[in-house]
Write a protein that binds this DNA or RNA. Structure first.
Lengths: 343, 343
DNA sequence: AAAAACTGTGGCAATGATGCCATAGTGCCT
DNA sequence: AGGCACTATGGCATCATTGCCACAGTTTTT
């Protein structure tokens, strides 16, 4: 009925001491290959796997790490989780995915409770939790090592993995400029993600470099979701001089731009170019497929796990981004210019 | 930092036995109000909080449940998780999300290991894990209660929540017939989801009822992902008499249909109607928005958690579906009929 | 009035693994 | 030859809590 096998049963079957089984379990040095083989065989035969609870109680490690997140883009989180899972699985660690609400004033206590209960050995934080003061304080106070994925702020005491959001946004904006766009609108990301400000800065830097003034009318608020892409686009298209291109801070919002264009019968990319950010699955699923910045989300996550497991001290690793050209971006048609030439 | 106080310290300070403190902790009956007050005071003074690990080890409940899944649609899983999380949070339970690979011959052992390690009190299975023999056997052998979300097979010993996939597919097909379609193609779901067969049966039932013969050419394999929607559509459109409507077994595949239509310059819905299934976020994000069957995914998940927590015996609860009409479906244009009339 | 049931409390074993200390053989340096 | 470091293994206490059994006093039932 119950699989009753514990470490003692394994020890008996393998003909060794309990302590030796424990050593095999924890990959301690000083176990002969011979003994290890016997123990492994016994464990396999008994279908043994150690109780985390007992391990926590007796020892100092639990073999578990937490992924703490608060992100509303399912595709993005899906990739983050996969990256973490893969590495954890390789490493024999258990991953506890823990959603939180960073706007909840109680978020620190919630994380404290979770750490207390699960005794996780470390944590991976995904933006925007990476910059959530209460959470950071709690983890530091409890002395839990953690790695941050795409943090917005520097933090001398912990490792992080990230990409150059500013440069990526600059690249995309420059690309739009290079193919002829001058009125380029920008939809900001959620304000609680620090990357949002970075991307905006990159956008503005690219414009400024070529002497295009930053027009506040062409910058709209956004929250990384489809609806805010829609809302922003409605605004842009009601302007006296609407943009010829819209650069959204993620793919979800870019999809919103496409939806409005479709509804109004505006041809993309002939009449309006649309660029996204992230290169989630969504970018390939919508029509036309989005020109976007590929963010190596899964690699970011698995690298974060690497850094957490690694012995090394704190490290800040930047992963490369890539501009992905698809069909949602083309040179502007610019009927007004043609007309003025004719007149 | 020093949460060094344990139940013994509390007992000593309160002047009672350790066991009595345990009773207070667990709200046992048979503790006098007087004693309870003393113990509460002592706990407060020592800032005591019990060790979950010890509790799990010594007791029979862990306060944790597992969500075991293997689904490749991020939007779908996102909703499932949310539903589970919400109820678990209300109930003070910890949720451990555990992805598995049902095609892995070792999947049973993996689940066994997870259960033994974490001591979960119960599990929620999401399709297709609901019909994965090895997993079911392991959970039964370990005597872990579980609830299945959208299982394909009946199972007298465990509760389940589901919707009527056959009826839903029938409804959608009938809707397409009612507005004039006769050549309706169908893209199957992943073969390892039992719901796939149900949906196909519903499609065929609706056709048969009105005397339309089921044309094997109009039924294509699919795997619940965008790409298989694309592949199926390429097939359909290369037929001598292509369909006027395509009914895909989920929204991801329906998005694939839309993509092919866009690429070939086929107007949706004027020249081709497209229907999906699930009503995930994706259905509203693509263009045109998908007519689809709303599956109450989040409710399914939270209901599953309800049944797991509930004292009640086994129960099979069906949740209602709903046909959502959006812009991807319209009456067929049928140019060939018009032509023949004219000639 | 005896028996049974309820109330309130205590003692001790058990849970499953690790930490620390001990032991013993081997190879190497001085 | 003595001492030391290294390899390999075993024994036992320990972690913090709950389950089971026992016991005594009080109330209810027969």
């Amino acid at each position: 009925m119950n699989s009753r096998s514990n470490i003692r049963d394994v020890a008996k079957l393998a003909g060794v001491a309990v302590k030796t089984v424990s050593r095999v379990l924890n990959n301690h040095p000083y176990v002969s290959a011979d003994t290890k083989a016997k123990v492994d065989a016994a464990m396999a035969e008994l279908r043994f796997s150690p109780s985390i609870a007992a391990r926590i109680l007796a020892g100092t490690k639990s073999g578990q790490i937490a992924l703490i997140y608060d992100n509303h883009s399912p595709y993005y989180m899906h990739q983050i989780m996969q990256g973490c899972w893969d590495r954890c699985h390789e490493e024999g660690m258990r991953l506890i995915a823990q959603p939180v609400d960073v706007s909840d004033p109680d978020v620190g206590e919630q994380v404290r409770g979770m750490v207390r209960q699960t005794h996780v050995d470390g944590a991976i934080l995904s933006s925007p939790v990476t910059d959530c003061g209460p959470v950071l304080n709690v983890l530091e106070a409890m002395n839990i090592p953690f790695v941050r994925i795409s943090p917005g702020t520097n933090h001398a005491l912990t490792s992080s993995v990230f990409m150059d959001d500013m440069q990526a946004a600059d690249d995309m904006t420059t690309h739009l400029i290079n193919i002829g766009h001058r009125r380029i609108a920008f939809i900001k990301g959620h304000a609680n993600h620090m990357a949002s400000a970075e991307r905006q800065a990159g956008y503005e830097r690219a414009l400024s470099r070529v002497g295009i003034s930053v027009d506040p009318e062409l910058i709209a608020e956004g929250h990384f979701d489809f609806e805010s892409g829609v809302a922003a686009t409605e605004l842009f298209l009601s302007l006296k001089y609407p943009p010829t291109a819209v650069f959204a801070s993620n793919d979800d919002m870019a999809s919103g731009v496409l939806a409005v264009a479709h509804r109004r019968g505006i041809q993309v990319p002939e009449q309006l170019s649309v660029a996204g950010f992230d290169d989630t699955t969504l970018a390939r699923v919508v029509w036309p497929p989005l020109t976007t910045v590929r963010q190596p989300v899964r690699d970011l996550a698995s690298t974060a796990a690497d850094l957490l497991f690694g012995e090394g001290g704190i490290e800040h690793r930047r992963l490369p981004h890539e501009l992905i050209s698809r069909e949602s971006v083309a040179p502007p048609y610019l009927p007004s210019l043609k007309k003025s030439k004719n007149t």
